[in-house]
């Protein structure tokens, strides 16, 4: 299953990737003229052992848009996000009920390889985590190299592209051989974003990507997320309500593992339909 096909096209064409990448016999998603959704989550429940962390969530995440997931601490934001590329399975004894369709295909179907899923759906974490033994360049290219890409010219090109897209190129172009962990916190996080987009995923999942950064670095990351949404579907978990309001198109509000409300960000922040959403965004709890 070491298919390197997914990273073969030498240009950044994330959404043009053929759907049969997911080994699945199910019917192809209808290619409607208006963009099909990136994810369709259907009656999803997620368990850690006996504990139910997500309960009966149904929502549709539009493609090439920014969707924010908000909610009080422990409500299941990270769990829901991680279930979108099966990262939550790294914890022992996890179990799901329901479905997650990605580009029309069930990513939990038995024949699906989570490794392939994760190649198509990248992730950026709260704590920036460049690999400590690698240089800046190696960090960016590690995903390609370990998946068998050897073409040097292609790698060099991809290195620059990814760093440019992560708005880091100008700052590091002369220090590409320096250790990734020698960068500042904000730069490290952008390096992690570059690393994630270097493998040309279709989606970027971000779990509080700016919560450990100072305001200036946060602003940079937000700007970057906005630019990325031209090419990528972005799902971002945030604690910070202003952040959700500033940089997302849609917002999902979770509370105690349930989806309370999902709507356009404008609607959620100006005219929520649910009482609980209003309480939360006006700071009455959480």
């Amino acid at each position: 299953m070491e298919s390197a096909a997914i990273i073969d096209p030498p240009m950044i064409t994330p959404v043009s990737l053929p759907q049969q990448q997911v080994a699945s016999g199910s019917e192809p998603a209808d290619v409607a003229p208006e963009r099909p959704p990136a994810f369709a989550v259907e009656r999803l429940s997620i368990f850690y052992g006996e504990k139910k962390a997500i309960e009966d969530v149904t929502l549709t995440i539009p493609s090439k848009m920014i969707t924010a997931i908000i909610g009080p601490s422990g409500c299941g934001k990270s769990t829901l996000l991680r279930s979108l590329n099966r990262m939550h399975e790294l914890a022992p004894n996890t179990r799901i009920e329901g479905k997650v369709l990605f580009a029309g295909d069930d990513i939990y179907a038995p024949e699906v390889d989570p490794v392939v899923i994760r190649r198509r759906i990248g992730m950026v974490f709260q704590k920036s985590n460049p690999f400590p033994t690698m240089s800046i360049a190696e960090n960016v290219l590690v995903g390609l190299k370990l998946n068998g890409v050897r073409d040097r010219a292609f790698l060099r090109e991809r290195l620059e592209q990814s760093l440019r897209m992560a708005a880091l190129w100008d700052e590091v172009k002369n220090d590409l051989h320096k250790p990734g962990i020698s960068l500042s916190g904000g730069q490290q996080q952008r390096l992690c974003i570059a690393r994630a987009i270097a493998v040309e995923p279709e989606v970027l999942l971000m779990d509080e990507p700016a919560s450990a950064l100072d305001p200036i670095a946060t602003a940079k990351i937000e700007e970057l997320i906005h630019e990325l949404s031209a090419n990528y579907t972005v799902v971002i978990v945030t604690h910070n309500m202003q952040q959700a309001g500033r940089c997302s198109d849609y917002t999902a509000f979770l509370y105690l593992g349930r989806l309370i409300e999902f709507a356009s960000t404008t609607k959620i922040f100006t005219n929520p339909s649910e009482r609980q959403t209003e309480d939360y965004i006006t700071g009455r709890f959480g």
């Binding site: 997914i6 990262m87 994760r118 190649r119 992730m123 985590n129 690999f131 033994t133 370990l146 493998v199």
Partner: peptide, 29 residues
């Protein structure tokens, strides 16, 4: 070796054994 490195690698679509050999073991070399 912090779990974050394993997660970061797996999230890049790197298989588990390559993650262990090239990321975890290299970090702990």
């Amino acid at each position: 070796v912090p779990a974050g490195y394993r997660e970061a690698s797996l999230a890049l679509g790197i298989s588990r054994w390559k993650t262990i050999v090239h990321i975890v073991m290299k970090t702990a070399l």
